[in-house]
């Protein structure tokens, strides 16, 4: 087995050996690295459990005269492997528009995320942080309001005649568009 160096066939064999070593070494290294990278990217494939309907209250609890009332939204919360018992996750204003028609507004100001107050005397909402003013239906009522959009409306439905269910979602604050946090 004595090959004299630098014949064309031995060059070819050398090249083949080098190429094989690089490819095989590369594969061996790539497998654990690829498994790790795939694992690392796991969060990208997960969506926040946004937009689940939550039973908030009963129809009877809403005044018939159309005055909005604040309700806390109670839901279970998940954090990776943990599921926590139901606890308040946010608040909504509910208002009877007509007999069975209800409007729901997210109680958080779309400007900077403060909780908005209902001001009975002015029949509208006022954000105590930067004085944004909103009408009963959530639209900006004062042109000087710093909020980039009106209060966020939420989907609401009455189930089984008396239960009020709200599809509760959070939206990014500070943008003119209403973009869900997902």
């Amino acid at each position: 087995m004595d090959d004299s160096p630098h014949t064309p066939s031995s060059d070819r064999r050398e090249f083949f050996k080098k190429a094989s070593a690089i490819v095989l070494g590369g594969v061996s290294t790539a497998v654990p690295v690829a498994a790790g990278v795939q694992f690392l990217l796991d969060p990208l494939g997960r969506k926040a459990g946004a937009g689940e309907s939550i039973r908030v209250t009963t129809l009877d609890a809403l005044p018939v005269d159309g005055v909005p009332r604040q309700f806390s939204v109670v839901a279970g919360r998940s954090d990776v492997w943990n599921r926590y018992p139901a606890s308040p996750v946010g608040a909504v204003y509910l208002r009877r528009v007509v007999e069975n028609k209800i409007e729901a507004l997210h109680a958080v100001c779309p400007h900077a995320g403060c909780f908005v107050d209902y001001v009975a005397g002015q029949s509208g909402f006022l954000c105590p942080c930067h004085n944004s003013r909103f009408a009963l239906d959530g639209r900006i009522s004062d042109a000087k309001s710093p909020s980039p959009r009106g209060m966020d409306t939420l989907e609401v439905e009455v189930r089984n005649g008396n239960e009020v269910w709200v599809k509760f979602q959070n939206f990014h604050a500070g943008h003119p568009e209403k973009v869900p946090v997902a």
Binding site: A35, G36, Q38, F39, L41, D42, G45, V80, W81
Partner: peptide, 23 residues
Amino acid sequence: QTAWESVYYIQHQMTGGWLLRGI
């Protein structure tokens, strides 16, 4: 309270977790 739980999550919920842990 989290060691088994996080390994469970790696093994049964995360993408390719079983492969990574298996290797």
